[in-house]
Design a protein around this nucleic acid. Structure first.
Lengths: 213, 213
DNA sequence: CCCTAAATTTGGAGGCGATGAAAAATGATC
DNA sequence: GATCATTTTTCATCGCCTCCAAATTTAGGG
């Protein structure tokens, strides 16, 4: 009894709902699709949709929660002699080469991101998830470094690192959206990511220093 | 015709709605107050409430938008020879001494913050405002430093600085909520804020470096 | 097979935030 | 005081979401 009929049907229903929803969102935009519409397309009742997904937003941002585990692993599996930032730098550049979806480097990530940007409720939910992921990473950092519970460093470091990846990846979206070829945009991004990580490592103490008159 | 009766009444109505709303929110919690309730308390119709405030959340977070201008000024009015981070450090510590509400140092900021934390929709809206403020600060930084439009430094620096203030200020809330006296909590916070700004200036390049085996 | 217990799905009623349009009230203007 | 513009109200409606009870489906044992 590895997997009963019940379990399989549940998994299938969940997937059918999510797939139908994504299809509708992609073609019509998130706010122009009602939950009733999704339910009809998936051939279930509205209540069943809310049975599997807490909110309409979760229909769209289903996979985002997996990121949490991914980032935690980057820290935990960093190499001997490697700092946390170095580990993320390595992970980020590897993701660029591999077209990893975690940082928005996959084909079609632009459509996905644009849909989020265009919907206030999706933006809000995405930010909430970002925050949860940051807190999770902070907890992992605190555990890995044996930090004091009152030490703010883990939370600050987590915020700075993830903030960096989000800003840099968002810039890629801006460029491709502006019509620039994906190839050139990625090449330019590599340089900007390098500079960003460098600045993160060496600090921004002198940034924008006003000259003495 | 400095100010007609019309203008005055509008201002009064707006204020009455905001005040009544805040009073209800404080005593019953944000999610336990309906817009209809606010309207009744302010003696207007529901539509009038939405006439003055775009959403229910804006009833609560009315003043937050002023922060934008405030942070921009910190950058623009930094002293000769002073870097951006130094200017914010100075502003932040001055605010601590003055009990400034901008960073949550005023009396009663804890109640305010707790209400935000406890309501998902308020949290979401607060984060959206945070993001807008960060983007505004980034634009100011770009202008002040004459940065290239493709330079990500302004956005990254803005995010790091404001992220720092939010994390540190949130820690004060955690401490006072835990029962610690405001006096001691503030004293401890000073040291933590100093460490946080130092780390921001000098970078986190070596953070969490795993020892070579 | 049949029966029962448990899980899943459904329908219906309703609350709440938000929008839109037309009617009513109020202030401004001449 | 009549007229015009603005503001407020009323009324209708939509969409997300919750709660509850009834109906359906599956699991497991006789």
């Amino acid at each position: 009894m590895e997997e009963g009929l019940r379990e399989r049907k549940k998994r299938e229903t969940r997937r059918r709902i999510a797939d139908m929803a994504m299809g509708l969102f992609m073609t019509k935009g998130f706010d122009n699709v009602t939950v009733a519409e999704v339910a009809r397309a998936a051939d279930v009742s509205v209540n069943t949709v809310f049975n599997y997904f807490g909110t309409k937003e979760d229909l769209f941002l289903d996979r985002e929660q997996e990121l949490q585990e991914s980032y935690d692993r980057v820290v935990r599996e960093r190499a001997p002699g490697e700092s946390v930032v170095e580990a993320f730098r390595r992970d980020y550049f590897a993701a660029m080469d591999a077209g990893d979806w975690r940082y928005g480097f996959n084909e079609g990530a632009d459509v996905f991101s644009r849909l989020i940007m265009e919907s206030p409720s999706l933006r809000a939910r995405a930010r909430e998830i970002d925050h949860l992921i940051t807190m999770s990473l902070a907890a992992t950092l605190a555990e890995e470094t044996g930090a004091d519970p009152d030490d703010l460093a883990p939370e600050l470091v987590a915020g700075q690192i993830l903030g960096l990846t989000r800003v840099v990846s968002r810039h890629l979206l801006r460029r491709t959206t502006a019509g620039e070829g994906r190839r050139e945009a990625l090449a330019a991004l590599r340089e900007q990511a390098r500079a960003a990580f460098d600045r993160l490592e060496s600090g921004i103490g002198g940034y924008g220093r006003r000259p003495v008159e």
